[in-house]
Design a protein around this nucleic acid. Structure first.
Length: 882
DNA sequence: AATTCCCGCCATCAG
DNA sequence: CTGATGGCGGGAATT
């Protein structure tokens, strides 16, 4: 062990020393590359020296090696790097010695095959690094424990230079996820205050950028805007001031100005504000850069702009890792521009509006099926896709075949419409709610009992609120807490989001429904797992792919990573059939369907969406009262059909007749019980739920086992496999349960939920928010994992966290909640994939608790091995050398 | 060629 | 002065 440690240190040292010298070298790089006979890439690994070489410099021993290496072949080098991949340690040097050896080996045998990958740049990306970083800490740490972060420690563990950690921490600090306590020390707060922070930012943002953004957005949409010009005008001077309070708020040291003002922190806040202020929640990089340059408007110099953009990428990477934004591209006349879309919690969510609206529509008698999504924009998107409408952003694929039509435009229009609609609705809602904030509104299903009208929807945020589904929301965002991952049921469509990014996936299928009438469907959990995983780097890509696979075709297309093709890219057609099939099997995620008014569809001409179909069937099969598991069976087949259709379904127009009828029926009887059905695949992972819509609140809770029997309006049907998990639905509220507690308020609540969310993964809680009040101290002994459940394999951490969360809530008390295990099968249902889960777990564990520093390394699977040696060292050292 | 964004120099800041 | 921070921009990797 000692030896190992020594090595470790040595390496580090080495590294450091190397760095210093490096400076001088800089000049040469050019040569290097040229001379490159040797190493093609800049060798991150090797110190600069190599580079120098050409120079007069005397050689260092190392240099020699390097030369050799380089001489050997670039490829080799690559491989090497690749191996390093996960290795936390800094890239560097360690390899020297080893390298040599390896090289030799390499020579002999061709190594390359396996490692095609190599560490490429991506592996070193800030986003990935950030994920690793976040994975080390729980999203929602117990208040009791304070986690301090030592920059040095983290840097060494993650194997990066400190400088990089600063980049991450600064952004996190801007969102108050961490705060600096002392030199080199930060305190981890987690996401507890995130919503509050965002709210504050939003407010601030409206003041500062409200108009501006509006302006830009309009501009963009219709015309081209010229850069600076307008902007300046619009921009108020107000910007000077640093972001308001927040920046200061916690900062201990903050004094103030100085260069800090320019800091990444401020920029980050401003950047976030732009999203919050933006109606579309999409901000293009160039606009952001322009706006953020603020000060000297005119000094638009190009270089400055470029620098700003660089910084924005840095910030964006971190935010992406947090699951707050995702990358998209907006297509304008000018062409496609990089942009980012906010996918984090939104205070005011349009979704709500939508929901509301839909609800209203229902009440009015509208019949069309409607889908709702709760949370963020993403959901939005999804819907769209569900509907057949074109999704807004990237998601959009051409749904139907209309090669010629300007689909993009349409899409945009669609988006705009939706937005407008949302706005309109929102008001309406507010009105309604205020007037009728009765409990009634919150029907049993409704998640949040929160008294505050609109608020309830809002704050609670989607994610948090519905545990059921939603777990994911967070999930994407971070791996860290166990929480997140959970399950997300995937919606068939939804998935489409970005693949590349891990985060995206998140959407969950769940919804909030204010009125009872809604249905929820939950799809298989499979995906959940994937999501969970996300944190890690390399995997992500893969994972996403998988996820996609799971997902319905429509949804995801992109398989490739991040970059999405242009939005307009056709969707289904492209999809490989195979893929679809796959998806079909597993997926069927759920979707919510709500009867909707026709209008909802607006754009999409297509009426039928998968969801709809589902609905239809389900409806058919399911008896209103309480369908049972039996349905599942029937359903499955259905699913497939459905899916197929779906995939094909280009025909919007023909909704299935049946479905319509159904919907109508519903319409007629608005309150009929409707249910949501979820049928994922049969076993495994998916759960099926049926909820009747109108039910009385009280009825809902059920144990899994009981499902069918329940008289309750809702039925939950777990898939067979799953059956074991218990679902808990607390009736929202109303019931007997204690009413919502005072609620600490939405914010708090929501938070809680989210936490629970994790838990949610499995257990579903549907209930009032009140239920979860996590604050409570950790549960005594919880044993979340019940042996009974086959599925549960929670990582300890998870379990623990879950336990804590749920415990508190009253609901929980009632019965043991089981958590679903995230890992579970989700991935693809039965497939062997199971392997993954393990990783996931690891991933999430907090290092401390589990002591599994290594977790992330896992990602890539094979490669890992080699790397491992290095890693190991690290691990050891870090872990406990003793 | 454009987009991303890693790397790390070096100016500042803090002690 | 030294170490901690972190702005900044070159230029390489990716798209």
């Amino acid at each position: 062990r000692n030896a190992v440690m020594e090595i470790f240190f040595i390496e580090n040292i080495f590294d450091r020393s190397r760095m210093a010298p490096k400076t001088p070298i800089k000049n040469e790089p050019v040569d290097l590359s040229k001379q490159k006979g040797c190493t093609p890439e800049r060798n991150p690994i090797t110190p600069v020296k190599l580079i120098d070489r050409p120079q007069p410099d005397p050689w260092t021993p190392t240099a020699n090696l390097k030369m050799l290496v380089s001489a050997a072949s670039p490829d080799m080098r690559d491989r090497e790097k690749k191996k390093e991949l996960f290795r936390p340690i800094e890239n560097s040097e360690q390899s020297d010695t080893p390298d040599l050896l390896q090289y030799d080996m390499v020579d002999d045998c061709t190594v390359d095959e396996f490692e095609k990958q190599r560490p490429s740049r991506k592996q070193k990306s800030l986003g990935l690094l950030c994920q690793k970083f976040l994975a080390r800490y729980p999203s929602y740490p117990l208040s009791t424990e304070k986690t301090t972060i030592s920059l040095d420690e983290v840097a060494s563990i993650l194997g990066v230079e400190r400088r990089r950690i600063y980049d991450i921490v600064n952004v996190l600090e801007s969102l108050h996820l961490v705060s600096r306590v002392a030199k080199n020390q930060y305190c981890w707060h987690g996401r507890h205050n995130l919503s509050q922070t965002l709210k504050t930012l939003q407010e601030a943002g409206e003041l500062q950028y409200g108009e501006l953004m509006t302006f830009f957005q309009h501009k963009e949409q219709d015309l081209e805007y010229k850069f600076g010009e307008r902007k300046k005008e619009t921009i108020p001077d107000s910007q000077d001031r640093p972001l308001l309070d927040f920046s200061e708020s916690d900062c201990t040291s903050a004094s103030a100005n100085s260069r800090k003002d320019k800091s990444l922190r401020i920029m980050s806040q401003k950047f976030v504000m732009l999203f919050l202020v933006s109606k579309t929640k999409i901000v293009t990089l160039d606009i952001a850069a322009k706006i953020l340059i603020e000060e000297t408007q005119d000094t638009v110099d190009h270089s400055k702009f470029k620098t700003k953009v660089r910084r924005l990428y840095d910030i964006a990477n971190v935010l992406t890792s947090l699951g707050l934004i995702k990358k998209v591209h907006v297509t304008e006349e000018r062409g496609r521009k990089p942009a980012f879309k906010w996918i984090g919690p939104v205070d005011q969510c349009q979704d709500q509006v939508e929901v509301k609206d839909s609800v209203n529509a229902l009440l009015r008698g509208a019949c069309a099926p409607y889908q709702i999504c709760a949370t963020g924009k993403q959901r939005f998107t999804r819907h769209a896709s569900f509907n057949g409408a074109q999704p807004c952003e990237g998601t959009r694929r051409k749904v139907s075949s209309e090669p010629n039509s300007p689909r993009q435009e349409r899409q945009d229009e669609y988006c705009s419409k939706m937005i407008n609609l949302a706005a309109v609705c929102r008001q309406k809602i507010e009105e309604d709610s205020s007037s009728a904030r009765k409990p009634s509104i919150t029907s049993p299903l409704s998640l949040l009992p929160v008294p505050g009208d609109s608020e309830f929807c809002v704050n609670p945020l989607p994610q948090a609120v519905f545990p059921v589904v939603q777990a994911d929301v967070p999930n994407l965002s971070l791996p860290n807490g166990v929480s997140s991952q959970a399950l997300q049921p995937c919606t068939p469509t939804a998935s489409k989001t970005e693949n590349g990014k891990p985060t995206l996936l998140p959407n969950q299928p769940f919804l909030c429904f204010p009125s009872s009438s809604l249905f929820m469907l939950c799809g298989g959990l499979q995906e959940n797992n994937l999501r969970e995983t996300l944190p890690t780097t390399g995997d992500v890509g893969k994972r996403s792919v998988e996820a996609q696979a799971a997902v319905p075709p429509a949804a995801c297309q992109k398989r490739s990573s991040h970059k999405c093709a242009s939005p307009s890219a056709p969707v289904d057609d492209e999809e490989p059939a195979a893929k679809k099939q796959t998806m079909e099997q597993s997926d069927v995620p759920l979707s919510l369907v709500v009867p909707k008014s026709p209008k909802a569809e607006s754009t999409p001409g297509s009426g039928c969406t998968s969801a709809e179909h589902l609905e239809a069937f389900h409806l058919d099969h399911a008896s209103p009262a309480a369908p049972e598991a039996a349905h599942k069976e029937s359903t499955k087949p259905l699913d497939s059909q459905e899916q197929e259709r779906w995939s094909q379904n280009k025909d919007p127009d023909e909704p299935s007749p049946g479905k319509e009828q159904i919907s109508k029926e519903n319409a007629n009887q608005p309150f009929l019980p409707q249910y949501l059905f979820v049928q994922p695949t049969a076993g495994l992972s998916s759960f099926n739920f049926l909820f009747s819509a109108n039910q009385a609140p009280g009825a809902i809770s059920l144990a899994a086992s009981q499902l069918p029997s329940l008289s309750v309006p809702c039925v939950v049907v777990p898939s067979a496999a799953v059956a074991s998990f218990p679902l808990v639905c607390s009736p929202t509220i109303t019931g007997p349960l204690s009413p919502v507690p005072d609620g600490s308020f939405s914010a708090a609540t929501s938070m809680n939920f989210s936490m629970s969310g994790l838990a949610s993964t499995t257990p579903v809680f549907i209930g009032t928010t009140a239920v979860v009040t996590p604050k409570v101290s950790p549960v005594p002994s919880v044993d979340p994992q019940q042996p009974a459940h086959p599925t549960l394999h929670l990582s300890p951490v998870l379990a623990r966290s879950c336990g804590a969360v749920k415990l508190d809530s009253p609901v929980c008390m009632g019965h043991p909640v089981t958590l679903l295990k995230l890992q579970q099968p989700s991935s693809t249902p039965l497939t062997p994939k199971s392997i993954r889960p393990a990783h996931h777990e690891a991933f999430f564990k907090t290092p401390g608790s589990l002591g599994d520093p290594v977790a992330w390394k896992k990602n890539e699977g094979n490669q890992t091995r080699n790397a491992s040696s290095v890693q190991r060292r690290l691990e050891i050292s870090s872990t406990s050398p003793d």
